[in-house]
Design a protein around this nucleic acid. Structure first.
Lengths: 186, 186
DNA sequence: CCTGAAGACTTCAGCCCTAAAGTTCGAAGC
DNA sequence: GCTTCGAACTTTAGGGCTGAAGTCTTCAGG
């Protein structure tokens, strides 16, 4: 068994605190307060996506499929949207949506049909099975989310929600374009 | 020009408030306070990744490459890590790292060489050019980040950082495994 | 009516990632 | 010192995504 002897190989995963200290060391003009917020946001989201991925996997689907179900449910009854609109809301290209819908239609989560009133358009509609899958995913997700926020008091939760919403408003105003492609995700 | 007449086609991008209202309508057992925090986190991170992607693109690289540079800088001088270690820190498979390093070595951002003391291992080392790229990216990123938090007072920033760090600690303790694959990213 | 222009979706080529097998080297036992 | 096991990385096959080109439909004009 190779010893952990060598210098370069393994230098322990940096904690958030170590990460910020390292950034300050390497980049003088850094506001540690800002960096703590930003780095925590990034790491938190990464972990959350991993957790969601595990949950959706137990339901036999991917996060990608879950996103589509979410968008359709959010559209409200009768749970219909076109591929282009879906693509815009998920931040994907229409081409990607075409394939995703193919797969989900094969699995029975959605149906795809031409709009009779305008035969250029296509209507993607949630099936009962798709809606049921969404509900199951929500039940899992809310348990995880409640657990995540467990240590926060009601006041803290409210304050956190308000502050994050302010930040979000600031970014969304600056990038009014709803569907900027997210070149990379992590 | 097709009129917006049709019912199904375009139902306006939901705002965060509308999204939460819709979730409550469709899923009774929902704590709106929790959902506001979680949904804001997700949307915020998506927007941030889009913004970072645009910035790194102006420097002629992708967010993926930027992540590698970050990990190497965080490792500290002499800015060396093995492919496996990098993969673990970025949440990728070793196979993906192999190819990423190929590309980055071709672009001169890193070098790849065998460890002389243990010829199974490979050492990826940041080049001066890579370090310079990282600095440029940091300069852009900090401007964006400072702008993002502009509306927050110093106290608010500190509080936000502390609360997020507590949440992060909770998830990281629950998923001690540093490199869970993030099956999907958005 | 026929034609041209624009919109909505799909198809195609190429890139990057995952999962699984393959290769190479180092460490331990006989 | 030879063999076997295990570790670290690379290679291969297949899937999902982007960007660009292609198809089909609708609308406006002559």
């Amino acid at each position: 068994m190779p010893e952990p002897s060598d210098a370069a190989a393994d230098a322990a995963e940096p904690s958030l605190e170590e990460q910020i200290a390292a950034y300050q060391r390497e980049f003088q003009d850094l506001d540690p307060q800002v960096e703590q917020v930003v780095s925590a946001l990034q790491r938190l989201n990464r972990r959350m996506n991993v957790a969601y991925g595990r949950q959706t996997a137990t339901l036999g689907m991917s996060n990608a499929e879950w996103e589509v179900l979410k968008a359709l449910v959010l559209a409200g009854a009768p749970y219909r949207l076109g591929p282009g609109e879906l693509a815009k809301r998920l931040g994907l290209t229409p081409a990607a949506m075409t394939h995703r819908i193919d797969r989900m239609a094969n699995e029975g989560l959605v149906t795809r049909e031409r709009d009779e009133n305008n035969r250029v358009r296509v209507i993607v509609e949630l099936t009962d099975e798709g809606r049921e899958k969404w509900l199951e995913a929500m039940r899992l997700a809310t348990v995880f989310e409640e657990d995540l926020l467990q240590d926060l008091s009601g006041d803290e939760r409210q304050l956190l929600g308000q502050v994050l919403t302010r930040l979000l408003r600031r970014v969304e105003d600056a990038q009014p374009d709803a569907g900027g492609r997210l070149s990379d995700l992590d």
